[in-house]
Design a binder for these strands. Structure first.
Length: 491
RNA sequence: CGGGGUGUAGCGUAGCCUGGUAUCGCGCCACAUUUGGGAUGUGGAGGUCGUAGGUUCGAAUCCUGCCACCCCGACCA
């Protein structure tokens, strides 16, 4: 296999696309804007699901499943919600095909649906319509439900993982008796996302609040985690919304309180998607290929035996390799032993680097003589020969060190790309020449926010949580401001 | 949806201007020799030239429509 390499520094987006294909993560499908997630890419997504799902369960949530189709009338019940999504909805209008002229299959016009169905772009409406029947008393609350699903948003321009017409995600939808409880849930799930991003994906994130302009359609407040990619562009990696009573009012979801009063239910929703795959790739990978954090890698260690042509030597090397594999497996490490004899070790080395396997162990006859193995780490590309005694422990430590190093590297990059500026010139200079986040004063108006977006293409990514309050003047208008916000060009 | 570009074997490509049935590399299959950083040799298989029309004796090549993808804009998780 000839591997096509594109340098990250030369063409970031071509590098990204090439990497997704070469590492066998995903490819374009026959359907516009939709991708095929290939087994290796899906294995990584499954690891994300496993880690997230465990955290959801630990915080008291249960999984459920709601329909793919949403009656159009549901959609229009929450005014800002429909405004936000109307432009990107796929609509089902018929339910039958028939044979037309020339043996073509055509839509049967007689099979028109009385009410069109929207392919869900998100499920708030169908879920709140359902919750109405589930909730009558404060004793029915809270409802803590998550669903793993696919959704469709008809985007003009798509990119593998980052923005596709159909994508996979999870959406949590919770119902609460009080506003405080719903806000606490919203913040709790933001913490879950941040913990996952930093400790599993090894991507440092900034937790914050969206401005009114960037808020989810139908939310009172949108919290988010924002990451910074290696090209200096920001990526929204997850959102958690406090929906207030907006959906409860739209769908008439009331409960009888302890005081025997009828009250509207308080809501949250929160989600992360296969976009995280994009974040993962763009945060760590290099010109050799993918770099996976050990906590996420479907295969954490690959063993490449260096096979001699002498039968007895070959058997001995393979036996030792299997022994190491078993030892590592017992420690809960996922190990692949690549004993293919029709490819050379060098080829395998390159292939597993491309796929981002964190640790590679090479073992040959020479090692057998000396009781050693060669261990190479993907993140730094260092390799060294070491004693094979207590190899399990060494590998365990190394995996931890790699996880830590990848995170620290991303953190250092991120921290070096938060530019604090005070003037419009500095603002533009930072965006154009330094890239990354720009921390600047903003007068708090949507008008100014939009003006800055128009002039620079940068958007307000968030107002960081626990933001320091300080008096200043808006970088564009000079109007008074009480805090800095983070601007960036974003995906 | 607007501007620009691309589409030839699994992948990357030459040929197109100047029309005559497709080039090369990698990969694939077989055998042999190899195997501590992307092996070598010999033989072999594989192509509706994105697609539908048109011009022509003849189209990968010229013309038109359509489709897909990439880059830039508007939009977004």
């Amino acid at each position: 296999m000839e591997i096509k390499k594109i340098k990250r520094s030369e063409d970031y987006s071509a590098w990204y696309n090439n990497l997704v294909k070469q590492a066998d993560l995903a490819e374009h499908s026959a359907v516009k804007g939709c991708m095929v997630i290939k087994p290796y890419g899906y294995a990584i997504w499954e690891k994300m699901q496993t880690e997230l799902d465990r955290r959801f369960k630990e915080t008291g949530h249960q999984n459920a499943y709601f329909p793919l189709f949403i009656p159009k009338s549901f959609f229009s019940k929450e005014a800002s919600h429909v405004d936000g999504f109307a432009k990107e909805c796929a609509v089902v209008t018929h339910y039958r095909l028939k044979n037309g002229e020339n043996n073509e299959i055509v839509v049967d016009e007689d099979a028109k649906l009385e009410e069109e169905l929207i392919v869900r772009p998100t499920s708030e409406t169908i879920i709140w319509n359902t919750y109405r029947d589930w909730i009558t008393s404060h004793r029915d609350l809270p409802i803590l439900v998550n669903q793993w699903a696919n959704v469709v948003r008809w985007e003009m321009r798509t990119r593998l993982f980052l923005r596709t017409t159909e994508f996979l995600w999870q959406e949590g939808h919770t119902a609460h008796a009080t506003s405080d409880e719903a806000v606490a849930e919203t913040k709790q799930m933001l913490e879950v996302y941040a913990d996952f991003a930093e400790n599993v994906l090894a991507v440092p994130v900034i937790k914050g609040v969206k401005t009114a302009n960037e808020r989810f359609a139908g939310a009172i407040e949108t919290y988010c985690i924002e990451g910074l990619m290696q090209d200096g562009k920001a990526l929204q990696m997850g959102t958690s919304h406090f929906l207030g009573q907006n959906f409860a009012k739209a769908f008439d979801v009331k409960f009888t309180s302890k005081e025997n009063k009828q009250e509207y239910v308080w809501a949250t929703s929160w989600g992360v998607s296969t976009r995280l795959m994009g974040a993962l790739i763009m945060s760590h990978s290099d010109d050799e290929g993918l770099v996976l954090p050990p906590n996420l890698a479907p295969i954490q260690v690959v063993i490449v035996p260096i096979l001699s042509k002498k039968e007895d030597e070959r058997e001995a090397v393979l036996a030792k390799a299997k022994e190491i594999q078993q030892g590592l497996k017992k420690r809960g490490i996922s190990v692949k032993l690549d004993d293919r004899e029709n490819t050379t070790p060098g080829f395998k080395f390159a292939e597993y680097e491309l796929k981002g396997i964190p640790v590679r162990i090479a073992i040959g006859n020479r090692d057998l003589q000396n009781n050693t193995v060669e261990i190479a780490r993907r993140d730094t590309k260092e390799k060294q020969s070491m004693s094979s005694i207590d190899i399990e422990h060494k590998v365990e430590n190394l995996l931890q060190a790699i996880q830590q190093n990848i995170f620290q590297k991303a953190m250092d990059y991120r921290d070096a790309h938060i530019h604090v500026v005070n003037t419009w010139d500095e603002f533009n200079d930072a965006l154009e020449n330094k890239t990354g986040f720009v921390s600047a004063h903003w007068d708090g108006t949507t008008e100014t926010e939009l003006k800055i977006k128009e002039l620079t293409k940068a958007t307000i990514r968030c107002v960081p949580l626990n933001n320091k309050l300080e008096n200043g003047t808006c970088v564009l208008t000079g109007n008074p401001s009480t805090q800095r916000v983070l601007f960036a060009k974003a995906y």
